[in-house]
Amino acid sequence: MKYVIYPVALALLAAVPFVASDYALGLLIGMVTYVTLASAWAMFSGPTHYVSLATVAFYGAGAYVVAMLNEVMAYPMILLITAGVGAAMALVVGLSTLRLAGVYFVIFSFGLAELIRQLITWYEINIYGTLGRYIFVDITARGIYWQMLALAAITIGLTAYINRSRLGLALRVIGDDEVVAAHSGIPLARMKLMAFVLSATILTLAGAIASPRWVYVEPAIVFNPTVSFLTVIMALFGGANRLWGPALGAIPLFLAFEYLSAHFPDVYPIFLGALFIGVVFLFPNGVLAGIEGLRRGKKEETA
C-alpha cells in the first residue's frame, strides 16, 4: 500500500509549482529545505544523541562550492563535487571528533562552522583577493524546488532504510549506551562515521541547491548560525528519533516563523527562545511522542 502512497504524494508535491504563486513556491522551497536539513540532521543526531550544531558548516560550504565553481563548470558537475566536498569534510571532521562525547561534541560542532567560515574568509582575502562572490546560475525557483524535494525524499527514504539496517540498529545501541555497544562488538567509530558522513553530505548538497537564490554570497551571509539552531529545534520539536518527526517539526515551525516575521517582527527572537525552552521541558522526545504519550495515557484511563 505505502509503495503506492509515497510515489503519488511525491508526484502531487512535485506538481504544486504549476498551480502555486511565486510566494507559495518560495514558501515551499523554504519548507522543503528545512525538512531536508532537519531530517538529515536527525539521521545522525537522532539515534546517537550527538547534538550537532554544525549544520550550517556543511550547508554553507555547499553554497560556497557553487559560488566558487559556477562560472567554470556545468551545474550537475558542481553538485557532484559538492557531494564529494561534503563527504570529505565530514570524514576528516568525524575521524577527529566522534570520540568526543556529550557537551564536548556540541561545542566542537558549533566551533566548526566558525572555523570553516574563518578559513574561507582567510582564503578569499589572501588568495582570491576579494570577499563576496556571485552566483549566476540559470536555475528557476521551480528547478530549486524540484531538486530540494528530490533531496528531501532521498533523505527520508535513506533514513527509513538505515533504521531497518544493521547500521540503524548499531546507532540506536550507541545512542542508548556506548559502553554496551562497544562490548557487543559494534565498531563504534566506523558506525558513527558512516552516519555522520551520510548526513553531512546531504546537508552540503542542500546548501548547494539553495544557493542560486542568494545571488551574492559572503561568509557572514552563508554561515548564519541561526540555520543550525533552527534545524535542531525543528528536529527536536517533531521528534528526532522518528522517521517523519523532523519533517513534522520543520513544517509548522517554518510557517510559524514566516507568520511572525510578517506580523510581529520584533518578537521573533523571543518566540524562538521560548520555543527552545518549551520543547525541552514539554516534549523532550518531540511532539509526536508527546501526542502518543497523551493518547496512551487516556486509553489506560478508560480501560
Binding site: 510566494y23 523554504g30 525557483a141 537564490r213 542568494w214 551571509i221 516575521s261
Partner: peptide, 22 residues
C-alpha cells in the same frame, strides 16, 4: 506593507516574492 527579513537573504527573497505575488 513592512516585513522583517531577520537579516537572512533566504527570508528576504521569500518576502519579496510575497510582496510581489501575494
Amino acid at each position: 506593507v513592512e516585513y522583517d527579513d531577520r537579516s537572512s537573504n533566504e527570508d528576504l527573497v521569500r518576502a519579496i516574492e510575497r510582496l510581489a505575488s501575494q
